[in-house]
């Protein structure tokens, strides 16, 4: 089903780059074949995108997650002919709030803002304000405390549960049961929602001892490395690590490798399932990986953008439909990545 859809889209892109040309082409086909008829939805569909603009406000660029989403959104914008922009907060929450504030106040305002929340509250007030101003706000992967027009992303609680379960399974009664938890920024969705998932599982397993639960700052791999080094010295018998993100946990696995404990400490992490994931899994640095499938999220995101723009064209207010799309999660292992290779920005297609 997905294949058919995607090949359909692919065809579209190949037929024409502009809607005008493609419409002409189609109409000539209609005239040639008398049996066909005009789809009443088509014209409204395509016209709803003209002159619209979408802005993506990521916490960072230059890492596989955001680059992947960006690629997907960019491809759709080109195909459907609306404006698309990236305004990067570059790991600076204050810069992010500045960007959102100026988007709300600028003229003309964007129609849709896709926002990547650095934590659960910092942007909340501004998101509410943006929707009041008629801008559809779609939250991406990291959700704030309020719900806006749309949300696309992994279910952090579920990811936490899956990671915790794999660690619990590995660190049975015969091991020390000592576990290190690494989180993102203190109030980031990954930290607070994942923690909930962890607690749900760990509370049922009293043999697991959380020796440290520390923040890696802005998903900083060198901080992850320092923390892991410290904890490994304090607890040479550490059994498992629950990491927050594959990029960050490159530091974690480096510390484990440095201490000569590679393979002895169970590492569970999560991420977008990009090539980095495969590399870490293949060389045995990471034992358990929960992927939230960036290409799939990209598709969901594109669909929500499309839906929002159409709703806007119909004159609906931003809070009319509130749609959350939790991404189906995949657990990657050495075996599964052989069948489903990891994605990279170059392999993405629209």
């Amino acid at each position: 089903m997905t294949n058919i859809l995607s090949s359909f889209r692919k065809k579209w892109r190949s037929i024409a780059t502009t809607a005008v040309v493609s419409t002409l082409a189609m109409s000539s086909v209609v005239q040639a074949a008398q049996l066909s008829m005009n789809d009443p939805e088509r014209d409204a569909y395509y016209s709803s995108f003209s002159g619209k603009s979408v802005v993506f406000v990521p916490v960072f660029m230059g890492l596989d997650l955001t680059e992947g989403w960006n690629k997907m959104m960019e491809m759709q914008s080109k195909a459907l002919g609306y404006k698309y922009q990236v305004r990067n907060a570059n790991f600076n929450t204050q810069a992010g709030t500045r960007i959102l504030t100026s988007l709300i106040h600028q003229n003309p305002k964007p129609d849709v803002i896709v926002v990547h929340n650095p934590d659960v509250t910092s942007y909340a007030r501004l998101e509410k304000q943006a929707e009041k101003e008629g801008i559809f706000v779609i939250q991406l992967n990291m959700k704030s405390t309020i719900m806006t027009s749309g949300f696309v992303g992994g279910d952090a609680v579920q990811i936490g549960k899956l990671q915790a379960e794999s660690v619990v399974n590995h660190c049975g009664p015969k091991t020390s049961g000592k576990v290190l938890i690494l989180t993102g920024p203190t109030t980031s969705p990954w930290s607070v929602y994942m923690e909930k998932g962890y607690q749900e599982v760990l509370s049922k397993h009293p043999n697991i001892k959380v020796v440290a639960r520390q923040s890696t700052g802005n998903y900083d791999s060198s901080k992850a490395k320092s923390i892991t080094q410290v904890v490994l010295q304090q607890h040479p018998d550490l059994c498992g690590v629950m990491g927050v993100w594959d990029v960050t946990d490159q530091g974690t696995v480096a510390a484990i490798k440095d201490a000569g404990k590679k393979g002895k400490v169970f590492v569970s992490t999560s991420g977008g399932g990009g090539t980095l994931a495969c590399k870490l899994i293949e060389d045995g640095s990471v034992d358990n990986y929960v992927s939230y499938d960036v290409p799939g999220q990209g598709r969901d995101l594109d669909d929500l953008i499309s839906a929002s723009l159409q709703a806007k064209a119909r004159g609906e207010k931003p809070d009319f439909h509130k749609t959350a799309l939790y991404t189906p999660l995949h657990e990657l292992t050495k075996e599964s990545i052989k069948k489903h290779p990891c994605w990279s920005v170059d392999t993405m297609r629209y």
Binding site: Q94, T97, P118, S122, A124, R125, P185, T186, S188, G217
Partner: peptide
């Protein structure tokens, strides 16, 4: 003033 405007705290406040 920043606190009153954003009404939330973040981990990277004031770094750099």
């Amino acid at each position: 003033f920043y606190g009153a405007r954003i009404d939330s705290s973040s981990a990277d406040t004031g770094s750099g």
